[in-house]
């Protein structure tokens, strides 16, 4: 018990004293995760939208595939992308392995099915009348799409936030593709794993507190957004 309280106390001291190592790790984590989320959203939202509104053969199959990919473990993605980005792999010449960009590639693959899948369900939930209304008021295909996405914005935003929460707290991809290089690819989760390996707890606990704070902030944001959503309906 003494041990835990002492670690906590030291962790808080570290947080308050704005320890540069700690905050650099937080910065790397946030930057990589935001980047992954941004790219996955830029790809996943249009993809999910198209799947939701188009009628095509095998649509159910595609949705089932997306839902299956949701459960893909991070280490599987890590392994797959490692094989791709390793110098011996197909994209080895890019020299991306053990860089933040490699983590972003893996994390984008991790959350693309999330963003796309949740966009599909968010857009599918949108009343058919929105499409009809936009069209009858003179909207072209793109304008109609924008009108529908606008109505689904809360659901989509929720999925983006959930995706961000997923990448910031994952470790498999960051460890395997980033390599936990100090001051370069060391993220909150990989740093915590290393500290555990070292038998150190102070930095790990401090990072844990930051991670919890980020998760809490994301959840509050999600609640607020869903609150608007509920009210707005």
């Amino acid at each position: 018990m003494d041990f835990l309280t002492q670690s906590l106390a030291e962790a808080f001291t570290m947080l308050v004293s704005l320890d540069p190592e700690l905050y650099f790790i937080v910065w790397v984590s946030l930057r990589v995760s935001l980047m992954s989320t941004l790219i996955a959203s830029a790809m996943g939202i249009p993809l999910g939208f198209l799947i939701a509104i188009r009628h095509f053969r095998g649509k159910r199959g595609v949705i089932t595939l997306l839902n299956t990919l949701l459960a893909l473990p991070t280490v599987v993605i890590g392994l797959f992308v490692y094989a791709l980005l390793s110098r011996q792999g197909a994209l080895g010449h890019l020299g991306l392995l053990y860089t933040p960009a490699a983590i972003v590639v893996g994390q984008v693959i991790l959350i693309l099915p999330w963003v796309a899948g949740f966009t599909v369900s968010a857009v599918s939930r949108i009343d058919e009348r929105y499409r009809r209304t936009a069209m009858t008021l003179g909207a072209g295909p793109l304008q109609t799409a924008i009108a529908i996405l606008r109505e689904a914005r809360f659901g989509i935003l929720g999925s983006v936030i959930a995706a961000f929460g997923r990448v910031i707290s994952e470790i498999g991809i960051a460890m395997m593709l980033g390599g936990n290089i100090k001051g370069f690819t060391r993220t909150m989760t990989t740093a915590m794993a290393l500290e555990h390996n070292k038998g150190e707890f102070v930095l790990a606990v401090a990072l844990g507190i930051v991670l919890l704070a980020v998760s809490l902030a994301m959840n509050i944001l999600l609640q607020v957004i869903q609150g608007w959503y509920g009210e707005d309906r």
Binding site: R31, M35, L38, A101, K198
Partner: peptide, 28 residues
């Protein structure tokens, strides 16, 4: 986020990558 470059290694920076054992890192 997007404005800050991801891989800070520019052409003239002198950087090497080394793989090592956990013991050298964990020992400090």
């Amino acid at each position: 986020v997007t404005a800050t470059p991801m891989n800070t290694a520019s052409a003239e920076s002198r950087i090497i990558t080394m793989s090592t054992t956990t013991s050298t890192e964990a020992s400090g």
